[in-house]
Simulated assay, not measured.
Amino acid sequence: MGRGTFKYETTIDAPLSEVWDFFKSAENLTVITSFPRIKLHSDSSTIEGNHIEMELNFGVVQKKWTAKILEVKEEEYFIDKGVKIPFPFIEWEHRHQFDSDGSRTKMTDIVNYQASIPNLFVTLVLRQMFSGRKKVLVKKFTSK
Rank of each mutant, 00 (worst) to 15 (best):
His51Cys: 08
Val111Pro: 11
Leu56Tyr: 11
Lys84Trp: 08
Lys7Ile: 15
Phe78Leu: 01
Ile110His: 01
Phe141Glu: 03
Ala26Leu: 05
Arg37Phe: 02
Asn50Arg: 13
Lys63Leu: 15
Asp109His: 05
Lys24Ser: 07
Ser34Asp: 14
Trp20Gly: 02
Tyr8Leu: 02
Glu91Pro: 05
Ser17Ile: 09
Asp101Met: 13
Ile38Gly: 06
Ile69Gly: 04
Ala67Trp: 07
Asp101Ala: 13
Lys81Ser: 11
Phe98Gly: 00
Arg104Glu: 06
Val61Ser: 08
Pro86Tyr: 00
Phe87Glu: 02
Lys39Phe: 12
Gly132Ala: 10
Asp13Cys: 10
Leu70Pro: 06
Asn50Phe: 09
Leu16Glu: 00
Val60Glu: 10
Ala26Met: 13
Thr105Ile: 01
Phe6Tyr: 15
Ile85Met: 09
Ser45Tyr: 05
Lys24Met: 13
Gln97Pro: 03
Phe130Gln: 08
Ser25Phe: 01
His96Cys: 07
Lys39Ala: 12
Glu71Trp: 02
Thr33Trp: 04
Glu93Met: 14
Trp65Pro: 05
Val125Ser: 12
Gly102Glu: 02
Lys64Met: 12
Asn119Phe: 10
Val83Cys: 09
Pro86Asn: 04
Met1His: 09
Gln97Glu: 13
Asn57Phe: 07
Ser25Arg: 08
Phe23Ser: 08
Thr33Val: 13
Asp21Ile: 00
Glu9Cys: 08
Val136Ile: 15
Leu120Met: 14
Ala14Lys: 05
Tyr77Ser: 03
Thr142Met: 10
Arg127Val: 04
Lys144Gly: 13
Glu55Ile: 12
Lys7Ser: 10
Thr142Val: 07
Val83Asn: 07
Ala26Gln: 10
Val31Gly: 03
Lys140Leu: 15
Tyr77Asp: 03
Ser100Gly: 12
Leu124Asn: 10
Lys7His: 04
Glu75Lys: 13
Met54Arg: 10
Ile38Val: 15
Ser131Pro: 07
Lys68Tyr: 08
Thr108Trp: 04
Lys135Leu: 14
Lys39Ser: 14
Ser103Asp: 15
Arg127Lys: 14
Asp99His: 10
Ser116Asp: 06
Lys134Gln: 15
Tyr77Asn: 05
Glu93Asp: 06
Glu48Arg: 15
Asn112His: 12
Lys135Cys: 06
Ser131Gln: 12
Ser103Tyr: 06
Leu40Pro: 08
Leu56Arg: 09
Val136Ala: 07
Ile69Cys: 07
Glu18Pro: 02
Arg3Asn: 15
Gln114Gly: 09
Gln62Leu: 12
Asp13Trp: 00
Asp43Pro: 11
His96Tyr: 03
Phe58Asn: 09
Ala115Asn: 05
Lys7Asp: 04
Val136Lys: 10
Lys64Val: 10
Val19Leu: 00
Phe141Ala: 04
Pro15Leu: 01
Ile12Met: 02
Thr105Met: 04
Thr142Tyr: 14
Ile32Lys: 05
Leu70Ala: 08
Asp80Pro: 05
Glu91Thr: 14
Ile79Tyr: 01
Asp109Phe: 02
Gly102Ala: 02
His41Lys: 14
Ser100Met: 05
Trp65Asn: 08
Gln114Trp: 05
Asn50Val: 10
Ser131Val: 09
Asn28Asp: 02
Pro15Phe: 00
Arg95Asn: 09
Val83Gly: 06
Pro86Ala: 08
Ala67Tyr: 13
